[in-house]
Amino acid sequence: MDLGALVACFASPACVVTQASSGLIVGLLLFLVAAGLTLIFGVLKIVNFAHGTFYMLGAYIAYSVLQATNSYGLAVLAAAAAMAVFGVAFERFLIARVYGGNVLMQLLICYAVVLIFDDLVKLIWGADFHAMGMPEAFQRAPIFIAGGVVPPFYAGLIVLSLCLAALLGLGLGFTRMGKIITAAAQNPQMVAALGINTTALFALVFGLGGGLAGLAGALAAPVRSLSPGMGFSILIESFIITVIGGMGSIAGALLTAIGYGLLRGFGTIGFPLFTDELIYAAMILVLLLRPSGLFGREIV
């Protein structure tokens, strides 16, 4: 515990800007993963424990595409597109076969997919860790805001993620498909009763979730280490965020992810030793007091 340091940090604009931006970058990347997780749960009532695998594959695909084409933009698009297709295939060929079955059967399929792709990644890219390295376009000096440091790459990521969040919100709120998804998240029977093709809907939701997770992997690849099994810790973190924010709520995931990032950013200064325990305790409290999460609606 070092609350003195925390107070001192809040008194200094430089410290606030730096820690807040570093918290935002952690939180927003997690949001991209959590958004898919929460959507899938909202619409299909499935906890996609294979979601970390989408993130991992996105990062590896981006790594290879960048090596082949030397274009980071292309790498990011390819990763997102490939994972969207992968998400659809995963839903159609695997998950769709156990709808209506035991929740644990779905869990088992996710577990199998995690095992298989962790090993496939090792087979294709090797057991050692990789680093993509910073794309040349972003190898610039940091920006200074009120004395705080914000690297240009991270500034770009924050803007991009917030745009995506807005786009997602608008898309869900104002397009026909989006409204159907939102409705399905709240009342799946009703949507089916209205004669809407839920098969296509479910595949679409998985595609969207997969694409977002792949995108997050590609965006994280320049600064994080790539290794088989790298999706696991991301899965845990984004799972916590979805539960606290409310399974099914995009806004909940966004706000919780940002809150989580900021907690990490300032927690490392004020109470570095307890951040993990604090987050688990928060998750337990939320579940006990408001099982559907801070922003979610209770499922029946």
């Binding site: 410290c15 820690q19 952690v26 994280a220 600064v223 790298m230 490392t268």
Partner: peptide
């Protein structure tokens, strides 16, 4: 002294803390 967690994929907040 900074203590990033086991298996933490992102050290950003630790790095900024160190710099400051």
């Amino acid at each position: 002294q900074a203590w990033p967690k086991l298996g933490q994929p992102d050290f950003t907040e630790v790095i900024t803390k160190l710099i400051q």
